[in-house]
Every structure is written in C-alpha cells, then in structure tokens.
Design a protein around this nucleic acid. Structure first.
Length: 278
DNA sequence: TTTGCTTGACCGGGTAC
DNA sequence: GTACCCGGTCAAGCAAA
C-alpha cells in the first residue's frame, strides 16, 4: 500500500535513471573496448578502428549521462535514504525476483552486460540456483583467489528475461577484491566503482540500475572464461557495427597477462565511470 | 590425478502474520 | 514473537583435462 506510493515517488527520478542507463551503456562499451584492445587475433588496423568506434560511443554515453545528472538535482535517486522496503512491493532481494531474503545488502552492486564473464577477474563457480519467479537460474561465482588470498569477492550472474540478442546478463558483484591478481590491477574501475561508498546498500542502487530481473544463466558454464556473447544491443547507443563473428573472436581471445598494464588512456576512459555512484 | 562444475541439502536473514 | 520463505553457501559426486 504505502509501498506503492513510495515507488511512485521514485519514478520522479527517471531522469537519473536514464542517466544511469547511459552510464551502464558506457560501462558496457568500455568492456567491449577492453576486449578489442586485448585482442591480438585481429589485424592491427581493424582493432584500432573498432576501438575508435567504441570510444566515440563511450564518450557520447558519458556526456549524455553527465548532462542528465547535472540537470537533475534529485538527491535520493541513488541510494541515500532509500530503504529496502521501498522496493519490496515489486521484487525484493538483490537484483532478484520476489523473495524474502536479501542477505548481502552491503558492498553489492549490479551491472548489465552482454559479457558477464569478462571483467578482468578470475571466478570460480560454486553454485547455481533457480530463483523464484525468475525464468533462468542464477549462477554464483567467487574469486578464484579466495583460498590462497582470502579474497571475499563474489558475483552472481543471471541472464535477463527476454529475447534480446545478444542476451543481456545481470551481474551482481559483492564485496571488493582484496586479491592481487592480473585482473585485479585493472580490476576495473568499473567493477570497483562502488569503492568505499559502495557501502550504500548496493542492492538498492542496483534496483535503480536494473529492471526487475527475471533472469538466467545459460552462461553459467563458462565461469572464468570469456563469454561467447557479443556486442550489447540494448539500444542505438550500444549497438555497434561490429560483426558477431568478430566479437566471437574478440571475446574468445584470452587476454595475455602483460597486456593488462594500465596506461593513462585506459585510466582516462575508466575515469568516466567514477561519477556513476555519486 | 587434479581441477572445476553440478546439484541437492542446509543455513539463516528477511518477511508475513 | 514466531513460522515460513527462499537466497546464498556448502560439499559430495561427477566429468573433463
């Protein structure tokens, strides 16, 4: 009852939601860009071209997001003051369908991507579960360095409901990496986006980021390897003119460890995401 | 033999009553 | 306050390398 009213009030912040969507798109583009940059199987010329194309789109997304955020003074859109019950009238949980539990509400954040396994870290699958009212099962991953380094990072992967191609995956990260791995160095500005402030109940902001997720994980089987999925196709901004075949190649290219050295350009690109949690 | 995935069972947090 | 629901995790068993 009152919950619906709360939800309605949230809808005022659709502008911020749009901005967040844009940021997500930029996020996705950055992932793709990274894949391109890591690719050694493509001719140099085409890689550079792809990278340039993705970067252009990335910048558009970032600019659009910034402009939207600047034009909207709403303060509650992203976490502050939002309690879990505000979302419980529809779907509760951590980016999940209807349920009672939200065990990990701290240090969690979500993203939507077509390449859920390619985030610069190595993950090991430790479980899969059918989620209530979700079309697809959710897969549970933890950092591969959990044992030797005690890294607490975990993530869950679900495929969004729907017939979108390529399939979009809702990736919910939980806890920061404490391990020192190849990927961790890059570890992604995107993935580390929440940083300290991530203590905002991540699931809450996540719910702003995401549509109520009936999801899946056909991808479950691929754990730490790059997924075969291709370019995001959620709207014109992320739709790239890259053939699926090319992306198959890109995504299947295992990243050589030494190509991960982060240069200033990469930092610049990834720096674009810093504001997404502000 | 080792490594990683699958899957059923259990734990316990969150919600409804 | 209590019972129930269900998401998250564990761990045994299995398969692939």
């Amino acid at each position: 009852m009152g919950r619906h009213a709360e939800l309605d009030s949230n809808s005022e912040h659709c502008d911020n939601r749009l901005a967040i969507d844009k940021i997500n798109q930029a996020h996705e583009l950055a992932r793709q860009l990274r894949a391109v940059l890591l690719s050694s199987s493509l001719p140099a010329g085409s890689s550079a071209e792809l990278a340039r194309e993705i970067l252009d789109k990335l910048m558009k997304c970032s600019a659009s997001a910034l402009s939207r955020l600047q034009s909207c003074c709403c303060r509650t859109c992203h976490g502050v003051g939002q309690r879990s019950r505000e979302y419980s009238s529809e779907k509760r949980g951590r980016c999940t369908p209807l349920g009672h539990k939200r065990r990990k509400t701290h240090n969690t954040w979500c993203t939507v991507t077509s390449v859920p396994y390619d985030d610069g870290h190595s993950w090991r699958k430790y479980g899969q579960k059918d989620i209530n009212s979700a079309k697809y099962p959710r897969s549970y991953y933890r950092c591969i360095h959990r044992k030797e380094q005690g890294c607490p990072a975990t993530k869950t992967v679900q495929q969004e409901d729907g017939d979108a191609y390529p399939p979009q995956f809702i990736v919910a990260y939980s806890m920061q990496h404490t391990c020192r791995s190849m990927g961790a160095s890059i570890a992604f500005a995107m993935e580390s986006a929440p940083k300290e402030e991530a203590s905002f109940e991540g699931s809450r902001s996540s719910r702003h980021l995401l549509p109520p997720p009936p999801s899946t994980a056909t991808a479950a089987n691929q754990s730490q390897t790059s997924s075969p999925s291709s370019v995001g196709d959620r709207d014109d901004t992320t739709r790239l003119s890259i053939s699926e075949l090319s992306w198959q190649e890109i995504m299947n290219t295992s990243p050589p460890a030494d190509t991960w050295s982060m240069d200033s350009n990469w930092e610049t690109v990834m720096g674009c995401f810093e504001f997404s949690e502000a």
